[in-house]
Amino acid sequence: MARGLQRPSGGLAPHFARCRMTRVLPQEVPVAIVFNGTTQAVMMATPDKLDAFGIGFALTEGTVTRGDEIETLEVIRHAKGYEVRMWVSDAAADRMAERRRSMMGPVGCGLCGIDSLDQAVRDVPRVISDFAMTTEQVRAATADLRNHQPLHDQTRAVHGAAFWQGDIIAACEDVGRHNALDKLIGTLMQRGIDPEQGAIVLTSRVSIDMVQKVAILGAPILIAVSAPTAQAIEIADKSNLTVAALSRGDHFETFTHPERIRP
């Protein structure tokens, strides 16, 4: 018997009371991403900020390289889900054909559905920003992220992604970690925020697809609460991206390009 525990007197079993309660749960619905009338992907996502989700997805998938290549965007609600319908320039449409998806992507993997191994582990641009943070700012950014997760506070079932620029100035949540990041990236584009002068802060692990998205965005520092994968660190190192992970309380570990994290 564990220390500090007492067996009920008289050999009686402990009594457990049941009660009814109400709990808020996040939504997880199919969201189709459609370019020029062709469905590029169907993702399971939280139906919030879907316009930003579409923009971020288009950028990180390489369909567009600038926001003005998206000519129109509308979010359409259907009986069984949502459709983010975009019309893009001819150049963007050609890129889309090179980055094809053929199946529904579950929330746990941002690469599911890619029908080419070369496309799964693709080359990403090198980050050129010289933006830097202090160790105290890294810890403060992680702590501040907790104040921008209202859906997580209600449900304990979603991921968060935020952009730090002296303070958290933008944050998004979703049941999928890569969806949350795409929503954040789309939000930054919508608001005209320079991603090269700030840091991405995540509640999730650092996987290959997360590193690819941040490098494509051009943000120089990626801070995460959880750990990275070995392959993600290899890509981050090659792309000149600083990764500080396992950031909890007063502790974090810098895995790549520590020159951007200053005492």
Rank of each mutant, 00 (worst) to 15 (best):
R122F: 04
D123E: 15
V124T: 12
V124M: 02
V124I: 15
P125I: 03
P125T: 04
R126C: 07
R126N: 05
V127C: 12
V127G: 06
V127Y: 05
I128S: 15
I128A: 15
I128C: 10
S129P: 14
S129M: 13
S129G: 11
S129K: 13
F131R: 10
F131L: 11
F131D: 11
F131H: 14
F131I: 11
A132L: 01
M133F: 02
M133R: 00
T135K: 12
T135P: 00
T135E: 12
E136V: 00
V138Y: 02
R139S: 08
R139I: 12
R139Q: 09
A141D: 05
A141Y: 06
A141L: 05
T142G: 10
T142E: 05
T142R: 13
T142A: 13
A143L: 12
A143W: 07
D144I: 00
D144R: 12
L145I: 10
R146T: 04
N147I: 01
H148G: 04
P150E: 13
P150G: 10
H152S: 14
D153L: 13
Q154T: 01
Q154L: 13
R156V: 02
A157Q: 14
A157R: 14
A157T: 05
A157V: 00
V158W: 04
V158H: 04
V158G: 03
H159P: 02
H159G: 05
G160A: 13
G160R: 01
G160H: 01
A161Q: 01
A162R: 09
A162F: 10
F163Q: 11
W164Y: 15
G166R: 11
D167H: 15
I168V: 15
I168S: 06
I168L: 09
I169E: 10
I169K: 11
A170G: 10
A171V: 10
C172S: 13
C172D: 06
E173K: 03
E173M: 07
E173F: 06
V175T: 13
G176H: 03
G176P: 00
R177L: 02
R177V: 01
R177C: 10
R177P: 05
H178V: 04
H178W: 09
H178G: 00
N179L: 03
A180L: 06
L181S: 11
D182T: 13
K183A: 04
I185R: 07
I185Q: 04
G186Q: 07
G186C: 06
T187C: 10
L188V: 06
M189S: 03
Q190Y: 07
R191P: 05
R191E: 14
G192H: 07
G192M: 09
G192P: 00
G192K: 06
I193H: 03
D194P: 15
D194H: 13
D194G: 13
D194Q: 12
P195W: 12
P195I: 09
P195V: 11
E196I: 08
G198A: 05
A199N: 08
A199T: 09
I200G: 09
V201H: 07
L202R: 02
T203H: 01
T203F: 01
S204W: 01
S204V: 02
S204C: 08
R205S: 13
R205N: 06
V206S: 11
V206C: 11
V206L: 11
S207E: 11
S207V: 08
